[in-house]
Design a binder for these strands. Structure first.
Length: 484
RNA sequence: GGAGAGGUGGCCGAGUGGUUGAAGGCGCACGCUUGGAAAGCGUGUGUAGGUUUACCCCUACCGAGGGUUCGAAUCCCUCCCUCUCCGCCA
């Protein structure tokens, strides 16, 4: 959520942000509502002040008169009753006026608040302006020794790559048909070494963050209240993307939602808390199952492990002081952790600076990491083959393509404001105004998607797959995956 | 699923109709004290909105929403949440 005061002071900044993010939110309407509301409120407030004053003045007098009333009769009694009635009448008339104003305020407020939740955080000035992921800009790329970006996989390695689906099939790592039988489209069953590899990557990722970078490991809920979804900024915008567990319709108190990322649980931890500045930055890492409806992605990446409804993800989150430079520093650090991680696995990748149109409402800046996936992309004829024939050696091979595996977001106070997560200068009991913290998040490893580049990059000519060295300790020392 | 208890400030905890925005304590800040520290003493210390150069002032907020009343933390209604016991259960 953005700061309404800041919006009032500098609406152009936010309008510009909306333009850059292609967000159609009507800021002028919001400002009109805000002006109206404040106007009504100040009227209601001064009436209320008047009412309070009258009540204080006439209250004791009413009490006095009521006492007298009992002991009186005749004309005296009538006079007292009249005075009481008069004393009561003045505040009572104010009450009606206040009620009318309150009704108007109560009509405007919910509209204003829900509108406010949809205003995007303006992107930082150094984020390139663009309309879609096509306008994202590559920052840098890395590949292990022996990998030449100018050559195809086949030229680099001397044989045509198989796609991960074929590898999974041949090595008995994933059972797609049975996954679909159980849970429908975009479902899968990890089997045998497939499951072990999946667990190995996740565990390695957690250990990497905890042991090398002093992150605190957490296990957090993945079934959460709506409040947590709104607070972390996934709702209302991403409502269609989340699975909704209807509990109210069967007698429960609240509906629940399955989270699409561990970020929700991690960021929800300190909702409505005032954190001690000395404890910052908080560094949390979790592994959690993530659920995504993939609404709107029908027909896209339908096969394989790339786009699926359920997966597991190791996520890192940092909550730091409200300082832009500190946020920026952490953003770079969190990217650095991921680069080290991928390099330790030997996976070629590139960093993409996302353009304004690709940031989403929450982010001031977002940098994606994409791993090279040799099995993705258009089929292209073998370079040597010339006119290709359907026979195996000349059959077209996939050209390879980058696939998104990580996304590092810098949100400043957008999320913490929604979550009401603050610090107070001088500690929890100290003095001074509270300020909203800053938050950042980044993937460490999302599996099974990360298995795609691992399997495809580490495949051998004989159809086996080598295990990256970093993962071997988690697989009982195994260095190869052979056909089952 | 059955029964009960409870939701008050950064935290604990009083408070059942009228200067109660809220006693008391803890914490924190400042001052005194001290060679220094602790203890002790004193003073201050909620959040949000509005107004203001600033000081001040006004309003709202005691889980949420509604109601009664001249006046509600306090009475009434609805809802939400948390806890305890029993039952069931990985």
């Amino acid at each position: 959520m953005i700061d309404l005061k800041a919006l009032r002071t500098d609406p152009e900044r936010f309008k510009d942000g909306c333009r850059k993010k292609n967000s159609p939110v009507d800021i002028d309407h919001l400002l009109r509502l805000d002006t109206q509301r404040r106007d009504l409120m100040s009227k209601a407030e001064s009436l209320r002040a008047e009412q309070k004053k009258l009540a204080k003045e006439s209250g004791p007098r009413i009490g006095q008169l009521s006492g007298k009333l009992k002991a009186s009769q005749g004309d005296e009694r009538a006079a007292i009753e009249a005075e009481i009635a008069q004393l009561k009448a003045a505040p009572a008339s104010l009450k009606d006026q206040i009620q009318t104003l309150d009704d108007q305020i109560n009509t405007i407020t919910p509209e204003l608040e829900s509108l406010l939740l949809t205003i995007p955080l303006p992107p930082d000035d150094d984020v390139p302006v663009g309309t879609s992921s096509d306008d994202n800009v590559e920052i840098r790329r890395w590949a292990p020794q022996g990998w030449d970006w100018d050559k195809t996989f086949e030229q680099n390695r001397g044989f045509k790559p198989k796609g991960h689906i074929e590898l999974c099939d041949a090595l008995g790592l994933v059972d797609f048909p049975r996954g679909v039988k159980i849970a429908g489209t975009r479902s899968y069953v990890l089997t045998g070494m497939g499951m072990r590899l999946h667990q190995a990557v996740l565990r390695y990722a957690i250990d990497f963050m905890v042991d090398r970078h002093a992150f605190t490991p957490m296990s957090v809920p993945v079934l959460v209240r709506e409040e947590a979804m709104v607070g972390t900024g996934f709702f209302p915008g991403g409502r269609e993307q989340a699975y909704h567990v209807e509990e109210t319709s069967r007698g429960g108190g609240q509906d629940m939602f399955l989270t699409g990322t561990g970020e929700v649980g991690l960021m929800g931890l300190h909702q409505n808390e005032i954190l001690d500045e000395a404890d910052l930055p908080l560094r949390y890492v979790t592994v959690s199952t993530c659920f995504r409806r993939e609404a709107g992605a029908a027909g896209k990446d339908t096969a394989g492990l790339y786009r699926i409804h359920q997966f597991d993800k190791v996520e890192q989150v940092v909550i730091c002081r409200a300082d832009e430079q500190e946020s920026r520093d952490w953003h770079q650090k969190m990217l650095g952790f991921v680069e080290d991680f991928l390099q330790s696995l030997g996976l070629p990748y590139r960093l993409l600076q996302c353009c304004t149109g690709d940031l989403g409402a929450k982010n001031a800046d977002m940098i994606d990491v994409e791993c090279w996936m040799p099995g993705r992309g258009e089929l292209s004829p073998s370079p040597e083959g010339g006119a290709s024939s359907p026979t195996a050696p000349d059959a077209p091979a996939p050209a390879g393509e980058f696939g998104e595996t990580h996304s590092a977001s810098r949100l400043y106070d957008y999320q913490c404001r929604r979550l009401n997560m603050r610090t107070r200068p001088g500690g929890a009991g100290g003095k001074g105004e509270t300020v909203f913290c800053h938050s950042l998040n980044n993937t460490v490893a999302a599996s099974p998607r990360i298995l795609i580049p691992i399997l495809e990059m580490f495949q051998n000519k004989d159809g086996s797959v080598s295990v990256p060295e970093a993962l071997r300790p988690y697989l009982g020392g195994a260095d190869q995956i052979l056909p089952a």
